[in-house]
Simulated assay, not measured.
Amino acid sequence: MRKWIIPTVIIAILVFWAISSYNGLVGVQADAKTAWSKVESAYQRRSDLIGNLVKTVQGAADFEKGTLTAVIEARAKATSITIDPTNVTPEQLAQFQQVQDGLKGSLSRLLVTVEQYPDLKANQNFLELQSQLEGTENRINVERDRFNDAVNVYDKKIKTFPSVIFAKLFGFNEMARFKAEEGAEKAPEVDFDFGNKKETK
């Protein structure tokens, strides 16, 4: 009977070790998925605000229809992409970011165009929505950073011993992260000449 004590203890330790490692992996993966859901929530908030902004702008009868249509189409494209962060590839995340950037760009053009419409620019509802959108952009950046932090914890967990053994055994894979836009590492050129450059002969 005694000869089974040591093997039983070893087996019990291995089982406990496996359960502990697996639960740890599940925990950090769940944290990363929760962080992603907050990213999606921030983007959804922006989408909802843009929808309300579009309705407000549509009230201006002579507003440029092309600019408005571009925002509506970009919004529809941005909301059509869904992602499972545990299975997403860097390419899929880049595509997601591309359509979100497209929406942000069309929205920027809309806001620039609004400058030509004094009554619309002074509309209290429009001003409030614009302010909320600015706050939402900041929230998106914060949630994206938090997602990257959560993914960093998860990725370190699945690559370190002994978790790496069970990560491979149970199919825990790396998660993609948000990256800076292409060219973001370059400082913008600032020209203070304002068109007053001297002509060169």
Rank of each mutant, 00 (worst) to 15 (best):
Q92G: 13
Q97E: 15
E64C: 09
E115P: 14
A167R: 10
E143L: 02
K104G: 02
T136K: 00
G195I: 08
F178N: 02
L14T: 03
L107D: 02
T160Y: 06
D84L: 02
V142P: 04
W36T: 07
A60N: 14
T79E: 11
D155K: 10
F126H: 10
A12V: 14
F192E: 11
R46C: 03
A167C: 12
E199K: 13
F96H: 11
M175I: 01
A94M: 05
R2G: 15
S106Y: 02
Q44V: 04
Y43G: 13
E128F: 08
V71R: 01
V88L: 04
Q130K: 07
F96T: 06
S47I: 00
N152I: 00
I6D: 12
N123I: 10
Q116N: 15
T82P: 09
Q58E: 14
S47P: 05
N196D: 15
A35I: 07
E189Q: 09
S37N: 12
T200K: 08
F166I: 08
I140R: 03
E189P: 00
E91P: 01
K55P: 00
A12H: 11
L111C: 01
E143I: 03
G51S: 15
W36A: 06
A61W: 01
D149M: 09
F166H: 11
E40Y: 03
T86C: 07
L103F: 00
L169W: 13
V15M: 15
K38D: 13
F172L: 07
Q95L: 07
D31N: 10
A74P: 03
E128H: 05
I165M: 12
E137Q: 10
D155V: 08
A32F: 04
D31Y: 00
K104M: 09
E73V: 06
L111A: 03
V71I: 10
A12I: 10
G27S: 15
K156R: 12
Y154R: 02
G59L: 07
A150P: 06
K197V: 03
D84R: 01
I5L: 15
E185Y: 06
E115C: 10
K55M: 06
S21Q: 14
L110S: 04
E185W: 01
N138T: 05
Q132C: 11
I19V: 15
L14M: 12
D191M: 05
R46V: 02
D62M: 07
S106K: 11
D101M: 08
E174Q: 14
T160M: 09
Y43W: 10
Q100M: 05
F63E: 11
G59Q: 09
G135H: 07
I6A: 14
V151N: 07
V39Q: 06
Q97Y: 01
Q130G: 07
L14S: 08
V153Q: 02
R109M: 10
N23K: 08
